[in-house]
Amino acid sequence: MDQTYLVKDLMTPNPVTVKPSDLVETVLQHLEKNHISGLPVVDDDGKVVGVISEADLLFRERPIKLPLYLNFLGSFFYLEPPRKLKQQLRKTLGVLVQDVMTANPITVAPDMPIAKAANFMIEKRVNRLPVIDNQGQLVGIITREDLLKALRTESAPEVDVAYTQHSLPDLGR
């Protein structure tokens, strides 16, 4: 991908957002209506506090995994931190965005090179990155789909259709 592309060249400006206090049902409506797979969560000041995606919503359908423990002389010793179960329960049973979202998302600046944003997505296994300005305000979002569109347009060869049709070999039609 061309190093001259910047995030601002490919991002979607002013993306659909939700607030932490919104219902999960609101997220589902936005995803369906806008044909998107995730969106930023912003506070009342327009600062990004999380991201909520289809993966966060699907997490609710997973069975709850109880932490491993040992029972020794009538006492329970947990082999995993109980807070992990607490987080899992909150995410599974949550009805508000703040219960289900992924908090403290990775964000990028509009002037970041696309190659660096793509690298973040791959390394951190995320599909979208909120784009924030110098004041921390949300100005856009960039997704893997945006990057793939840029690759498609960049790698699409220009073909002279008239030349191609005449230069194909006769296959005994």
Rank of each mutant, 00 (worst) to 15 (best):
V131W: 10
K19A: 01
V41Q: 00
V108G: 03
P110H: 04
M112H: 00
G140A: 07
N127Y: 09
Q3D: 11
K8C: 06
L148S: 06
A55G: 14
F72C: 08
K19F: 00
N119M: 14
E54V: 08
I106C: 06
L68G: 11
L58M: 11
I114H: 09
K33P: 01
V95E: 14
D111H: 14
K149D: 14
R128E: 12
L31G: 07
T107Y: 08
L70R: 15
D170R: 09
R83Q: 12
R62Q: 09
M11I: 03
T17H: 05
T143V: 01
N71R: 13
G172H: 03
H35G: 08
S37P: 02
L23H: 10
T92P: 03
V48Y: 01
L58V: 00
L73K: 13
D56P: 08
S21I: 08
T17V: 15
V139K: 14
R125D: 15
T26C: 00
V95L: 10
Q87I: 12
Y78M: 07
H166N: 09
D160W: 04
N14G: 04
G50Y: 07
Q87W: 12
K116H: 14
K91I: 01
L85F: 00
L147P: 09
D99V: 04
K116M: 10
T92G: 06
L66C: 05
L89G: 03
P20R: 01
